[in-house]
Design a protein around this nucleic acid. Structure first.
Length: 189
DNA sequence: CGTAAGATATTCT
DNA sequence: GAATATCTTACGT
């Protein structure tokens, strides 16, 4: 289980550090292979225009979940970080499925491992993440978040699906992973 | 392979 | 009314 103070750093550092970490919810999940960082001075962030009912967890304690509905139907899962900069969080975008693959296949309605958790909405469906987990601490059940064993090879690039802040290279991914939401174009890290 | 449309909560104009 | 940190299905090449 990760120590809570590991989340108390700027969002890009936390996002990078989460690559290779193991995320399970009720024993189902895998290795984090793709993340994105957001903070309150970032025009692409939900927290950019201040606190609202939806983004309230981003302004709360570090190490908790920020779960929100996007496009009215999918869920997205974030880790709140950096107490010194309220409104900071890391979006978990893709996992390499490891534990409970059969359960994830049933929840997603697809069989291919690459389609189970290769996107923020997909992994929420695969791990059964929804609004009930919003604001919950990640350091206790049903969450099980373990730091990366080794030092994964991390690449970074521009974030996906944003029209503001496109010049900010705050998307992080494990180099060469087959389980990303989209291939990471060659970029320095 | 590709592009396009539809689902529809929350926020902003 | 329009946009959004998305995904699936349908249809053209």
């Amino acid at each position: 289980m990760m120590s809570p103070d590991l989340f108390d750093r700027p969002a890009p550092l936390v996002a990078r550090g989460l690559i290779g970490a193991r995320l399970l919810i009720d024993g189902v999940g895998g290795r984090i292979v793709e993340t994105e960082a957001y903070d309150a001075v970032d025009p692409a962030s939900h927290s950019y225009r201040g606190q609202t009912p939806r983004n309230a967890p981003m302004f709360g304690p570090v190490g908790r979940a920020y779960v929100y509905r996007i496009y009215g139907l999918h869920w997205c899962f974030n880790v709140v970080c950096d107490a010194a900069s309220p409104g900071s969080a890391v979006l978990i975008r893709a996992l390499e499925p490891i534990e409970g693959v059969q359960i994830m296949q049933a929840r997603r309605g697809v069989a291919a491992a690459r389609d189970l958790c290769s996107g923020p909405g997909k992994l929420c469906q695969a791990l059964a993440i929804d609004g009930r987990l919003n604001g919950i601490a990640l350091t206790s059940p049903p969450f099980d978040l373990t730091a990366a064993a080794g030092a994964p090879n991390v690449v970074q690039g521009p974030r996906i699906g944003v029209s503001a802040g496109v010049g900010t290279a705050w998307r992080f991914a494990e180099a060469g992973s087959r389980f990303l939401s989209r291939a990471m174009t060659e970029e320095g890290a």
